[in-house]
Design a protein around this nucleic acid. Sequence first.
RNA 1: GCCGAAAUGGUGGAAUUGGCAGACGCGUCGGACUCAAAAUCCGAAGAUGGCGACAUCGUGUGGGUUCAAGUCCCACUUUCGGCACCA
Length: 806
Amino acid sequence: MDYIAIEKKWQDKWQRDDVYKFDKTKVGKKKYVMEMFSYPSGAKLHAGHWFNFGPSDSYARFKAMQGYNVFEPMGFDAFGLPAENYAIKTGIHPEDSTLKNIDTMERQLKAMGAMFNWDAEVVTCMPDYYKWTQWMFVQLYKAGLAYRKEAPVNWCPSCATVLANEQVVDGACERCNSTVVRKNLTQWFFKITDYAEELLNCLDDLDWPEKTKLMQKNWIGKSTGAEVEFTLDNGKTFRVFTTRADTLYGVSYVVLAPEHPLVDEITTPDRQADIDAYRDMVSKVNEIERLSSTREKTGAFTGAYAINPINGKKVQVWVADYVLYSYGTGAVMGVPSHDERDFAFANKYGMDITRVVKGGEGVDDTLPFVEEGYAINCDEFDGLPTSEAKKGIVEKLASIGKGKFVTNYRLRDWLVSRQRYWGAPIPVVYCDKCGTVVVPEEQLPVLLPRDVDFKPDGKSPLRKHEGFMNTTCPHCGGPATREADTLDTFVCSSWYFLRYPDNKNQDKPFDSEWINQMLPVDKYIGGAEHACMHLLYARFFVKALRDMGYLNFDEPFKSLVHQGIILGPDGQKMSKSRGNVVSPDSYIDKYGADAFRMYLMFGFSYTTGGPWSDDGIRSIAKYLDRVERLVLGYIDKTESSDDIGEEEKNLNYILNTTIKKVTEDMEAFSFNTAIARLMELTNAIYLYKGTNVNFIKDVLDKMVRLLAPITPHFSEELNMLMGKPYPIIKREYPLVDESALVKNEVEIAIQINSKIKGRIMIPTDKSGKDLEEYIIALPEVVALIGGATVRKIIVVPGRLANIIVG
RNA sequence: GCCGAAAUGGUGGAAUUGGCAGACGCGUCGGACUCAAAAUCCGAAGAUGGCGACAUCGUGUGGGUUCAAGUCCCACUUUCGGCACCA
């Protein structure tokens, strides 16, 4: 078969006949299946894209043949850093390179023969999309979920530009190698923390991989503890967060994050130089290093003292980089006796170490002792177990207004400002008279100007564009300045699944009534690397939009599957710089799209992926030839017996177990085993020696239908050759004939003392005691037992019998 | 460092979730067809020992639980994903 020719033929015909059109009148039977859209960075799709899109398209086709009305849209996450970097390097405008890449990728995606609903496409860098991204910002602002505050960025002093984490290599700028420092800028945030509790609680009900739910759970990082107020010499107070309030009597110092604003106020003149030097040093260390538990703890004394509210003890106030300003209150109490970090810190700087928790009977409670135990040296709380001591101490603090129970989350608010050009402008203007004013909805979009200078020279590209920056205040009409930052591209991807089904809507981002019927997405497929960020942001958006009244559901993605990653042949992640990118094009030219996607489905575990190798791609082509020969061999045969003998019964059994297994495997994204079953069926048909041609034709028809989601063009062709109705996607997916699966005998393994000794056939109508007695009475089994005493017998129906003797 | 995964023949990968390890392929070897080769069809095969029936060993390492462990528990090793401005 000329695969290339038939693929082209069917793709054209499918398009002419619009066979994959989503039927908006049958929304009750809808299945919304979508893959994470891709970033058009490289000029072309690589094998990894196919690995994401090909198999999931097969899943979508499988659902379509099961009678669902499938919606499988596709789009592009088109804003972002790489296009801008490319522009800086080559001078090619990001819009031009991006649109060109999208064009190429669309063409390649169409060549895949997927049933994408192209009329639902979204491209996030187009004004008709980012208009509504900006609208989202405005709604969040109105709902009190967007605010500004100072936050650090990576700053390269030599390039005078903000760097992405990715552009910082070992603390240095990837372009000029100067040391990168952190610098505070006022930036926009979304208050995702308002939803921390709900984001955590709703995880339970999602059909997502357990590991992903666990990662999100840990990312949100709920921890219950207490805030305790310490008073400084100058009368000012600050709070520390602790999960071990029971150790408050053991505090020997307190620590503020180096970024904590109080540090400036309290540092004594003689300590100022030290503190400045320390803060300068810390500004060069990234957060991952700061949190490393093996890194040596460092700190500096501010010269100030604070009073422990529980016992009036005066303790030193230090700064140390292991305290993060962004978590808890940005301050912690140091209890060296019961915390490993504090223990190391206290030893280094010569602080007191006072035990306040004792282990129970027989417990090794060598300091630092971080387990729970019983309070000692704690006045009236002595002897209380840890949990009660916590309660007692916090209640006492509460009674004097010095503490309370609080719940803390590790999750931080989402910083959405980017000091870059290639993103959606943040729709805000600053007016001397009216202050911060969001752009009214009817004035959206705030268009991203094309004629900008995006060379890095110390200013955000948009800030240099006077025509963009200078505007009038929507409130008072006076002169005003625009926000020069753009939105994080994660904002664009946090709602695109809401736009797909209503992508042409000019009046609103989507029609709520329609979207409430189309969503949530039934099956979302994408990489596990998005577990914590994209997948959490999208959930936040849906919840926020629901609370604003735009949606009536709680979660965007009911069911989630992660595909693995196809690595380069060298086992490394495919990347242009490594030069290990595998392009599908030459394979498709040689073997066709069907064979290529089937190979990807067969040669790798879908959720694991692995290093690319084309060993075996030829074997898929050979397999398809084998199927073709089989079908063509029977097509013209008209003479048939109507025998239903052993040959037919046997093959019918294999056919129906295949249908059963393949259906289950397709449902579970276990494509490699589904294909293995189909190969077994093909092998079994080859071995058929009977003469019942009508029966075989029926088996072949079912096999072709089972193959249709995996090799759509090839199966369409065979379907036509067999004279069956077009298109195959509208034909029914084969159903299992349960009666064909009934067998009256099964083979089980016989174990003596847990070692396999043989295999026997046993009737399927026996069970329990009957079966045990039947087995030990069998002559083969008696011989194996050889006169020894049977002590125990364990029978696993259909699997094995283990006879314990001796 | 912290969070989350993974490790199975020469090789890609299976294993009903605690029940016959290695399905289905690739590669290899043998046979059929052929003058021959290719293609195709049929078959063998974890390792070691044995002519053989068979025996022993075997799922990254070391322990453990169990009638039974690739699967569960403990301690490690290595690799991968994420760590909030790559997307």
